[in-house]
Simulated scan of single mutants.
Amino acid sequence: MAQLEYSEFQAAMLDEEKRRRKAAKIVAVLGHFLGRDKDVLAGLTVADIGCSAGFIADELANAGAARTFGVDIDVPGLRKASARFGERVEFLCADGTALPFPDGSIDVLVFNHIYEHVVDPDAIMAEMRRVLADDGVLYLGLGNRLGVMEPHYRLPFLSYLPPALADRYVRLSGRADSYYERYRTRRGLRKMARGFRVWDYTFPVLATPAAFAGSELFPGVVGRLAGGVLSRLPRAVLRALLPVVPTYLWVATKGARRPAGPVLPQPPDPVQTL
């Protein structure tokens, strides 16, 4: 079932400070992959798929994009976005399975914590591959079904449950009438990203949060401690943790493009290659 007017019942979409922190992380990851320190998106055509109220799209425009689009089916969110950011961003009401762009016309796509909300994420991935330029870059923020705490309702193990039990769980909690989100495991996400070459930025961001504006992941002292621990862990240990990481941060391409930024204590891992 399509989640229309999502910003009307999910207050987090209107939390400007939090959304801009997420955007800063996205821009930092893209900057590392592209090998750019300033004006990360200069000269590029960029689209935020699932933009809602437009805060992330606005930050993409602020990062120097030559042209920025925000795409969603959330009409109230798009109205708010257009009223505030319409001079910098072109907002379009469109389904992700039928993006209103020509083949190969977008240099950078952002698909951040959206797939669990849509009816057919595989179809959207195929459509994003169609519109992405041959040397383009796709940023993916992907929730993991095996993350213990479900992020939208803050209920432990909610995403582990089959739909009928998940519905009962959220109703009993008093937080919603139904549980619409559908998460996948890392294996399922790899299948969803088939046809792309994918680099995993999850541990680089966690291990060096200052380099990636990643304070939202583990704020304050906790973040510094977590980053210090992760930066020293052997790669084999980190790989063992991957199945239960709550969120994956991936960068995908259609070709053999590699990260162009400096080497990190925990460099991005290739998730899959073409």
Results as ranks from 00 to 15, higher is better:
D48I: 15
H152A: 06
R84K: 08
D135E: 15
Y183S: 08
R36T: 01
L189E: 03
T208R: 05
L92P: 00
I114N: 12
R186S: 07
T202W: 08
S105T: 10
E17F: 01
G70R: 14
H113R: 12
R129K: 15
A81K: 09
A53Q: 01
E181W: 03
A94C: 01
F55A: 10
A65N: 03
V27C: 11
P162N: 12
A193T: 07
V118L: 00
A193Y: 04
R154Q: 11
A66N: 13
L132A: 07
D103T: 10
G214M: 09
L30G: 13
H152S: 07
S178F: 06
P121H: 05
V137F: 14
A226M: 11
L60M: 14
Y115D: 15
G141N: 10
R130K: 02
A98E: 08
F212V: 05
G86V: 13
F111V: 03
F218S: 12
L99H: 03
V40C: 07
S105F: 05
I124N: 11
V75G: 07
P243W: 02
D120R: 12
P163R: 14
K254L: 03
D39V: 02
L161N: 08
V271E: 11
S173A: 15
L30H: 10
K38H: 10
E5A: 13
R168W: 11
L60R: 09
L165K: 14
L99C: 04
L225T: 06
V46Y: 04
A207K: 01
I26D: 12
R79M: 04
I49K: 10
A57T: 06
G104E: 07
G223F: 07
F55R: 04
L78I: 12
A252P: 01
W250A: 06
F33E: 09
F55L: 02
V245C: 00
V108I: 14
G255Q: 05
R21E: 13
P234S: 09
G104I: 00
V137A: 15
I49S: 09
D95P: 00
L161Y: 08
D37M: 03
P265S: 00
G43M: 14
L230N: 03
R182L: 04
L44H: 08
A53H: 00
M13L: 13
A23Y: 08
D48C: 14
P234C: 09
L233E: 11
K38T: 15
L142R: 12
G96M: 04
M149C: 11
A226T: 12
Y139S: 03
P162E: 15
A260R: 15
L238K: 03
P219G: 10
N62F: 03
D72Q: 06
